[in-house]
Amino acid sequence: MDAVETKSATVFLKPPWLFKGSALYQLHLVKAATARTFIPKEFRLVEAFGYTLGGFFLAQYEDSPFGVFDELVVIAGIVWNPPTSCAWAARVLVNNHDACLHGRKDVGLPSHYAGFSKRIAAITEKRRDTSSGFLNRVGVGSFVRSTIKHLDIQVSEIKDSSEAEFCSMRLPTSVSQSTLGKSWMGPLVKMSLPSFR
């Protein structure tokens, strides 16, 4: 990774940077004490009852200044950025060296290079037959087996010549189709990301 740091692939790029693709944004409650370990002391954490809103952002970009790449952003929590608030990235993993460098140098993100492995897997599940409503209510309904497709994603951080698994996800078909860019799952979203450098 050190060799990549010596060049700047983003010298010629001026904002606004345009990224097109599909994404999944999953929100979770995070303990405020845990979130504070990732957020600089000069920023005030948005919290209620000892919790803030964190989660992750998983994206597959089909068009960007750096070409096609995947990104996983782990969000520690929400910080005040008057007059509004914004999500604080605790970790950013991308599988494109130039995008990684751009995130660090131009945007101030904690970007790291990673490998993304994706595969669609079929899983057979046993579930109650919904056509026999009364029998299900009294506990004697029948079960049916159905095959459901999932998208399995493994993300591994790569440092020098070593690789460490960071996370593994299983997304249902409706989400996986969107993530693969094969169907439309929502409105076109335009985002402006602040720089905290």
Rank of each mutant, 00 (worst) to 15 (best):
V4S: 07
K7D: 10
S8N: 14
V11E: 09
F12Y: 11
L13G: 05
G21R: 01
S22M: 03
A23H: 04
L29T: 12
A35P: 03
R36K: 15
E42G: 02
E42A: 08
R44A: 12
F49H: 13
Y51L: 12
G54C: 08
G54A: 08
F56P: 02
V73L: 05
V73M: 02
V74C: 06
I78E: 07
I78F: 01
V79H: 14
V79Y: 08
V79R: 12
V79N: 09
S85K: 08
V92Q: 03
L93Q: 01
L93K: 01
N96A: 06
H97C: 08
A99I: 06
D106I: 06
V107K: 04
G108A: 05
S111V: 03
S111I: 00
H112W: 00
Y113M: 08
I123Y: 12
T124C: 04
E125A: 01
S131M: 02
S131G: 12
L135W: 13
L135D: 15
N136L: 12
N136C: 14
G141R: 04
S142A: 14
R145W: 13
I153N: 04
V155Q: 01
D160R: 12
E163L: 00
A164E: 09
A164G: 02
E165V: 14
E165W: 00
R170Y: 11
P172M: 05
V175P: 00
S176G: 15
S183V: 04
P187M: 04
P187N: 13
K190D: 14
K190P: 06
S192Q: 15
P194N: 11
F196G: 03
R197D: 05
